[in-house]
């Protein structure tokens, strides 16, 4: 993450962001709200829809050539669903140049493992939208300046 990220994001175009929902989790209000926040910050937000598999998310991220993947997960299945996304991104050579952020309910005990596996940041309930958007903007900015 951060300084090691080789983003292809260039300042003269809107950054692209995939907002995704995975597995059996059917609660997408949070995903809609964060989609709007990124839209209002000038991002092109691709919304995946519900019930995506890790493979579908990786396919969408590659086909859409996004700079950021934001996964909203409230089901508690993050330790099952997130690592395959990271592994497949790595297989396609895209993990290092993408920012992967998680939102939703992730217990403290699980955070370090996910961050070590390649997640760049985790935003829990109550995180102000501005803070999430600012983190992404700073990370992309730092990467494109590098």
């Amino acid at each position: 993450m951060g300084s090691s990220m080789e983003s292809h994001h260039q300042a003269d175009r809107p950054p692209r962001c995939l907002i995704a929902k995975m597995g059996l989790d059917g609660h997408d209000r949070g995903a809609h709200v964060i989609s709007r926040a990124f839209r209002d910050a000038g991002f092109e937000v691709i919304y995946s829809g519900l019930h995506q598999t890790p493979e579908e998310i990786v396919t969408a991220a590659i086909e859409e050539d996004v700079d950021v993947i934001g996964i909203s997960i409230l089901s508690g299945a993050h330790n099952t669903l997130i690592p395959p996304v990271l592994e497949q991104l790595d297989d396609e050579g895209r993990l290092d140049e993408l920012l992967v952020i998680l939102g939703g309910i992730i217990p403290d005990a699980d955070r370090d493992g996910l961050l070590a596996a390649g997640v760049d940041a985790i935003f829990g309930p109550g995180t102000p939208m501005d803070q999430t958007v600012a983190f992404v903007e700073e990370s992309l900015g730092a990467a494109s300046d590098a």
Partner: peptide
């Protein structure tokens, strides 16, 4: 968006499931 220049691209939601090797490519 005429104000922020951002967009929510939601057409992918309706597209059939795909993978990187499939004969289908979707771009928003």
């Amino acid at each position: 968006s005429p104000t922020s220049g951002g967009a929510v691209l939601g057409d992918r939601v309706r597209m059939p499931a795909s993978n990187v090797d499939a004969d289908l490519y979707v771009r928003s």
